[in-house]
Amino acid sequence: MRRITMTVNGREITCEVEERLLLVQFLRETLKLTGTHVGCDTSQCGVCVVHVDGQSIKSCSMLAVQADGRSVTTIEGLMKDGEMHPMQAAFHDQHGLQCGFCTPGMVMSAIDLLQKNPDPTEQEIREWLEGNLCRCTGYHNIVKAVRQAATAISRQGEART
């Protein structure tokens, strides 16, 4: 067992964990943050994507002990003042989700894309989502949602400056 401290969705948490505990298990089992899902065991499906220090990663391929001292954001940490993040809102507007199981990972991944490339083309969006599988939507509306969010976020930015 090992004692770890990390910030999860803005809240500092200290816990004793088994070394073999994956970050995703820590989030789901220990912290009961069940919005982050598990969909494969070969780190390909991306339903477990969260942000660690702002960067999207697959929480099934990282140990909880490796997140010691880091800042983790999950889907539960995106809402601000009761408002959805523009990416969540865009998925809602564009019908970018059906069963919702891939959605948290998809949203977290897409947010990271816009951090790195605020104005991606459709092709760039499709390529970025290589590590996020969706079985319901055929990705069509997900791509539209990411485009909508890109526009919304850049407008927000303009409004601020």
Partner: peptide, 9 residues
């Protein structure tokens, strides 16, 4: 290599 999340780690 891999996908963005794999490349991040």
């Amino acid at each position: 290599i891999g996908d963005p999340q794999v490349r991040h780690r």
